[in-house]
Write a protein that binds this DNA or RNA. Sequence first.
DNA 1: TCGATAAATTCAAATTTTTCGATGAATTGC
DNA 2: GCAATTCATCGAAAAATTTGAATTTATCGA
Lengths: 95, 95
Amino acid sequence: MNKVLDIKSVEKISKALGDPYRLKIMEAVKKQKQWLPCCDILGMIDLAQSTVSHHLKQLVDADLLLLEKDGRNTRYYVNKEVLSAYIKYLNQLEA
Amino acid sequence: MNKVLDIKSVEKISKALGDPYRLKIMEAVKKQKQWLPCCDILGMIDLAQSTVSHHLKQLVDADLLLLEKDGRNTRYYVNKEVLSAYIKYLNQLEA
DNA sequence: TCGATAAATTCAAATTTTTCGATGAATTGC
DNA sequence: GCAATTCATCGAAAAATTTGAATTTATCGA
């Protein structure tokens, strides 16, 4: 809690959120309220598996999503701590 | 006040914030607490005038910055309403 | 009016991002 | 063990973004 982001992280997070498919993924993961398996995400989005995997990687690299591996499945959930820190940065931009 | 952003706007705003120079511009405009002339921004950033103009245009197109023209000068300031709406979207993503 | 200044626009190049097919790695069920 | 499943990675093509020189537009000051 109370994480502070450096400017490079802010850039990365913004970039990760700057794509319609990645926003859709974020909303889907959030709606789940639980872990969301990768294959479920694939079902919602009309893109190749490798492309979805790439988008997920960007969200994970930006720390917006956390992942947990369970056998051959990978499940995702929203990293609230980082999202909070991002929001905090934006609030400061507004002040 | 209480503006609600559609997903396309969220994407555009995120994209606009996903660049180090544009973040720097946002911070500079915010620090000013008043209008910031374009030529001042130019002085802070090691980029060609046309490039800075292009970055500013993206921030304005995303509604993150408002501009006012005064003679040959253009001054910018942060659009708090849109920033608030963006933050609201992110908060809902976290819930 | 004329030259200087501020900023936007145009155009082209260099770079980055997006996309997908193919392949690889790990795991599961039979 | 083996075929099927899940997901990641690689490589290349297509698309989008970034950048700056040159030009344009508009305004200011002398």
